[in-house]
């Protein structure tokens, strides 16, 4: 063993131990319990991969999986668009910029379950703010959480409101690393603002964009509190995410099946993370 390696070990071991203890162990433990038929009041027996076979045939599981993929796709796309716009604005020089930056971060600073509750109250049919506004402009009340599409969009709006600031702040950090000289040069070459954005800004902050995407996608795939509070998975189970679906089985006392849902969710998130990391590394930002 080289000296260099020997000296590195004391620094690496705590990290490895930490990862094993707090990340690997729970995953392995969940996987282990997913191999059991473990239901309160009924039974506990080893059944191998039978829970996964049951998942495969479970229509509601496939619906939840579809929702779990669709939800991040729609909400994260919107968050990236709004996040970039806000970051560009916040990157400009103007008076009270510090205060505006602080205010823009507020939604992210609110605990998500409280943010969700605020939106749930706003969506309320009888005395919610959304219907109150509609009423004042003369449009009848809408049962926001009552139809599949409006319930879905209601969740997207709440999620976009809460996490766009996070995306904006990360992208703002990226924007600040772009050298001002490049823009000056580009102006001399006679480019317009759009060209500068797409040819200079975007390529240069791409790695940051990918980091933001990675965080947001993984987070949105595991979405739980927002849905639990706002729709409870309704109407008729249409907005149930995988995490909520798995949780329901834990609540019902079917720990084995709930664990297998959690493992699938873990795999989906893990594969996506690997995908993002690959994309992030391979493409060096071209100038």
């Amino acid at each position: 063993m080289s000296r260099e390696l020997r000296e590195a070990i004391p620094f690496v071991v705590p990290l490895v131990l930490f990862i094993c203890l707090f990340i690997l162990l729970p995953v392995v433990g969940t996987f282990w319990s997913s191999l059991w038929r473990d239901v309160s009041f009924i039974t506990r027996e080893f059944i191998g991969f039978e829970n996964y076979l049951r998942l495969f045939k479970d229509l509601q599981f496939w619906r939840a999986t579809f929702f779990t993929l669709l939800f991040p796709f729609v909400s994260v796309s919107l968050e990236m668009i709004f996040g970039i716009i806000i970051a560009l604005v916040l990157n400009e020089q103007f008076r009270l910029r510090g205060i505006v930056r602080g205010i823009a971060l507020l939604p992210w600073a609110i605990p998500s379950v409280i943010g969700a509750r605020i939106w749930q109250l706003m969506y309320r049919y009888d005395y919610g703010l959304a219907n109150y506004i509609l009423k004042t402009i003369g449009i009848g009340p809408v049962n926001w959480l009552g139809s599949p599409i409006s319930a879905f969009l209601s969740l997207v709006v709440a999620d976009v409101w809460r996490t766009t600031p996070f995306v904006a702040i990360i992208l703002l950090a990226g924007l600040q690393t772009v050298p001002e000289d490049l823009y000056k040069q580009a102006r001399v070459d006679g480019t317009n603002a759009l060209q500068r954005f797409f040819k200079i800004t975007l390529p240069l902050i791409k790695p940051i964009v990918i980091v933001a995407l990675l965080f947001r996608t993984i987070d949105a795939i595991r979405v739980f509190d927002l849905i639990y509070v706002i729709t409870g998975g309704g109407p008729g189970g249409i907005t149930t995410s995988l995490s909520l679906y798995g949780y329901k089985f834990f609540l019902l006392g079917d720990f084995g099946y709930g664990s297998s849902v959690s493992i699938i969710l873990f795999l989906v998130a893990f594969l996506l993370a690997i995908g993002y990391v690959k994309i992030g590394r391979f493409r060096e930002a071209p100038l």
Binding site: Q60, S147, G234, P235, G236, G237, I238, K248, L252, D254
Partner: peptide, 17 residues
């Protein structure tokens, strides 16, 4: 477990879907 299934479908019927 039975209740969970029934809740889901009765609620879906009430929603009109």
């Amino acid at each position: 477990q039975v209740s969970e299934v029934l809740q889901r479908y009765v609620n879906a019927a009430l929603s009109g879907s």
